[in-house]
């Protein structure tokens, strides 16, 4: 039987590794290295192949939780990791220059996977914004304009509760079809 898995992807510094850590019951296998580019201004290390975590579900089965690298040059990993995934969780770092543009990059790259399964969006780093509610409105309006019915939530990727909501809504989306 194919492995059950969900994939966290999204922009650099959006909190993908943290989200995988929040869910995983095992120490997360990381492939993070020290960044040599502008990413160092954002964080100490960056994922370059994948993060891998696991949750035990019933009957000895496990749910695999993968995190992808964020940078576009690792897009081949996005495709490898998302094969046969239950769905894609896309995290967007709102403190970047054009987060909506970032979001579009991921929607386009994962288009086929999203059509076959589903997607859920989490907006992170809203605490850095002057008015987080107004920032969220940007996403709601964008989703409305695009006709996206996918969920988009403000999240703190370090919080298990917030990450749970992302997974929960992913399952609900799958259920509704």
């Amino acid at each position: 039987m194919a492995q059950l898995k969900i994939v966290f992807t999204g922009t650099v510094g959006a909190g993908k590794t943290q989200a995988v850590e929040a869910l995983s019951e095992i120490p997360v296998l990381k492939t993070d290295v020290q960044a040599t580019d502008e990413v160092v201004d954002l964080k100490d290390s960056t994922t370059i192949a994948m993060d891998y975590g696991e949750m035990a579900i019933s009957d000895g089965e496990t749910l695999a939780v993968y995190g992808t690298p964020g940078q576009k040059r690792f897009a081949y990993m996005w495709d490898i990791l998302s094969r046969n995934a239950l769905g894609i969780v896309i995290l967007v770092n709102n403190s970047r220059k054009d987060p909506i543009e970032d979001l579009c990059v991921y929607v386009n790259n994962f288009k086929q996977h999203i059509e076959n399964t589903t997607a859920v969006f989490g907006v992170t780093h809203l605490d850095k914004a002057k008015n987080p509610a107004e920032e969220m409105n940007k996403y709601y309006t964008f989703f409305e304009q695009q006709g996206y019915h996918y969920p988009v939530f403000p999240v703190d990727a370090r919080k298990r509760n917030d990450v749970n909501v992302l997974v929960e809504s992913l399952l609900a989306m799958l259920e509704v079809g």
């Binding site: 059950l4 579900i57 009957d59």
Partner: peptide, 8 residues
């Protein structure tokens, strides 16, 4: 869905 939710 049920299995994952149960754990989650």
């Amino acid at each position: 869905m049920q299995k994952v939710l149960g754990t989650l």
